[in-house]
């Protein structure tokens, strides 16, 4: 009965490979969506104000892109493990306050505090896994904790960034503005770490099919700890970079980053569940948001009142485009 099936199954194979070609095209389009949205925003800027497309223009417009990109990467690690961090913004603020005070006045203690805070992140990962807690609520509580600590460290806006940090962030390489180089570097390093190394596969797998990973003998506790510790590490880098740019700190300085970081990951093609994230996409998403947030809107003469709305609208438009593409994938 069976051998006669060959012709029929070859026929099926041919058909499904055509289907797969269509699938691959939709996937490619989807993968290019973050880059397309960035290109669109750049085009709009070039059209509205051609002078902005220059070394100086980019340095200015992308001023805050580095800390936003780093915070987005931090959020991306958490999302890769099917969790969400609602405290990354206040954490960045806390790190900023420590950077502008302890790290300058007593570098050793400052460094210990920052390393300790990465440890706290790792512990949170362990807690969430062991007690099977909803990360949204835990990190919501932690957002109070970080904010409280930030106020305790720096009750009034002020402090000063360490000189080496100021020097680093003011770096002016030839031809290409520093924020672009830094963003590229961040994207490539994280891409290599998460998408190319053998343990990166395990980290992403823990979001894709945790049960299967556990059955293959991997520790899900460890993957969660590593993902949260990485989020903490990039949160620390983001806070330091932010203070390197603004030179002084304020306990509320990072509050907006929680939502920006989530939006950046989603704009960059990430999904909330299933371990589908893209580091390069996340960086592009962060750049898009950084550009769209103020320079574009200023050039378009959108009053400052409506700038937040524009961010929301960009998110909705990109997600709508993604839904259209996904429908094609079906």
């Amino acid at each position: 009965m069976r051998p006669e099936m060959t012709a029929a199954s070859l026929d099926t194979a041919a058909r499904t490979s055509a289907e797969r070609g269509a699938l691959a095209r939709a996937r490619l389009l989807r993968g290019l969506l973050p880059a397309l949205s960035l290109a669109l925003v750049l085009l709009a800027i070039a059209w509205l104000n051609p002078r902005a497309i220059s070394y100086f223009g980019f340095s200015l417009m992308l001023n805050l892109a580095i800390p936003i990109a780093l915070a987005t990467i931090a959020q991306m690690f958490v999302i890769a493990g099917n969790e969400l961090d609602l405290s990354i913004g206040t954490f960045v603020g806390f790190v900023g306050c420590v950077t502008a005070t302890w790290l300058k006045d007593a570098p050793l203690i400052g460094a210990v505090i920052l390393l300790g805070s990465i440890g706290v992140y790792a512990l949170l990962g362990a807690l969430i896994h062991l007690r099977n807690l909803p990360s949204i609520v835990v990190t919501l509580g932690m957002s109070f904790v970080w904010q409280g600590l930030a106020i305790l460290v720096l009750p009034k806006p002020g402090g000063k960034a360490p000189d080496w940090l100021l020097g680093l962030m003011a770096f002016k390489p030839p031809f290409i503005p520093f924020p672009i180089i830094a963003a590229l570097l961040i994207g490539l390093i994280v891409h290599f770490g998460l998408m190319r190394t053998s343990y990166g596969v395990i980290l992403r797998g823990s979001g894709g099919n945790p049960a299967a990973l556990g059955r293959a003998g991997w520790s899900l506790l460890k993957t969660k700890i590593v993902l949260f510790a990485l989020a903490g590490l990039f949160g620390v880098l983001s806070g330091m970079a932010l203070i390197g740019i603004t030179t002084s700190a304020d306990a509320n300085i990072g509050n907006g980053y929680t939502l920006l970081a989530i939006a950046g990951v989603i704009l960059g093609g990430g999904e909330f569940v299933g371990g589908r994230v893209s580091p390069i996409g996340a960086v592009i998403g962060a750049l898009t948001l950084a550009l769209a947030a103020s320079p574009l809107l200023t050039f378009m003469h959108i009053p400052p009142d409506w700038q937040v709305a524009a961010n929301g609208a960009i998110l909705i438009i990109v997600l709508a485009a993604r839904v259209l593409i996904s429908r094609k994938e079906r």
Partner: peptide, 8 residues
Amino acid sequence: GVRLLLTG
């Protein structure tokens, strides 16, 4: 600061 910390 302490108030926020304790609430969290």
